[in-house]
Amino acid sequence: MALFGLLPDTALVNVLVILAATGLVWVGSGWLEESADHLSGYYGLPAVVQGSIVVAIGSSFPELASVVFAALDGVFDMGVGAIVGSAIFNILVIPALSGIATEDDLETSRTIVYKEAQFYMLAVSVLVVTFALAVIYVPTPGGPELSGNITRPLAAIPLLLYCLYLFIQWQDVSDYEAEEPGDDIPVRKEWGRLAVGLLVILVAVEQLVHGVDHLSTAFGIPEFLAGVTILAAATSLPDTLVSVRSAKSGKGVTSLGNVLGSNTFDLLVAIPIGVLIVGSVPIDFAVAIPMLGVLTLATILLFTIMRTGLSLSKVESYALLVAYVVFVAWVVAESAGVTDLIRGA
């Protein structure tokens, strides 16, 4: 039933719920961005840390929730697919929309290029290694040839890398000379608004995901296609709104930092958290690795574009959108059986 069982699960009702949930996500992301901006100024955080830690973790709550729910429902592959699809959406679509939304080129920085982007590529590599270790040392009895179980000790590997990421950010904060914060910032009120914004986003995205899932089932959209495209885009909506708003206000570093920081959190924290809750979850290496390969290529593309002139032009923004359209076309071809690069999808 839609809206926590209060409304019938019809196509029309779910369309209306999706529209209402999208509006709530817009409101919640606005509260999140404003409160994070005020709190970051109060505590003297650099713009890149504000985007890659404070805002990124907040706007990544939908992805974290989707992985937890998927693990509890025994469809962890679907959750991982949504995470990786969301990461590809974040890397290609969000910077593109942010670049298009600004009047001039979207400015980046050497910190974004040489620290955030490269650390994110390291995060992708560590996740691939974790999946490979699961297949080698904890194979699934009677399962597909390239399937294994991610256990809690294996889940600790990406979590430890995220601890290193936090340590690096902490070092940057300790070296940063911030301006004196104003005395007129109501700290408790801003923390309260941050919490309410997170709650609104979480509830709205849960309904958004439910509505999209129902419509995909009603109209016969394959589960794999819905996971890596529709659900991925739905859970990325808060990241999109926050990043575009930051870009339009002239905060290009915060906008791009949110994208890379959110993806780093999703891969190194959201997926392991689902494992820690359940204890052990199966992973199909043949499905996961081609998607992570595409994510790696998308990250390299964004890294190369950002390094060119340390900015993102309108032409480069549209090129990223074209790359995402090509990705969606490939996933549709996989679902339709036209191509067969993703085995078992």
Rank of each mutant, 00 (worst) to 15 (best):
V244M: 03
T296E: 02
P272N: 03
L241N: 00
E145H: 07
E179N: 12
W191C: 05
D77N: 11
L194I: 03
E116P: 00
I83V: 15
E179P: 03
L297A: 15
L146W: 00
L297Q: 03
V129H: 06
L97A: 11
V67P: 09
I150P: 12
I100L: 15
A247E: 00
A20P: 00
L202Q: 07
V27L: 13
V244A: 07
A333G: 07
A178S: 15
S59C: 05
L208Y: 03
G99T: 00
Y114N: 15
V67L: 13
T240I: 02
S29G: 08
L146A: 13
F61H: 02
L106W: 08
K314A: 14
P282K: 06
T296L: 13
L202T: 13
L16H: 01
S125W: 05
L72I: 07
P144W: 02
S236I: 11
D37G: 04
G44S: 05
Y43C: 12
S335T: 03
G257N: 09
D77T: 01
A117L: 12
S147I: 00
S98C: 06
G41V: 05
V209W: 04
V15Y: 15
A155I: 09
L256N: 03
D73T: 05
I100V: 15
V332I: 09
K189T: 15
L276C: 13
R152Y: 12
F285E: 10
K251M: 10
A47D: 14
V244P: 03
S60V: 04
G51L: 08
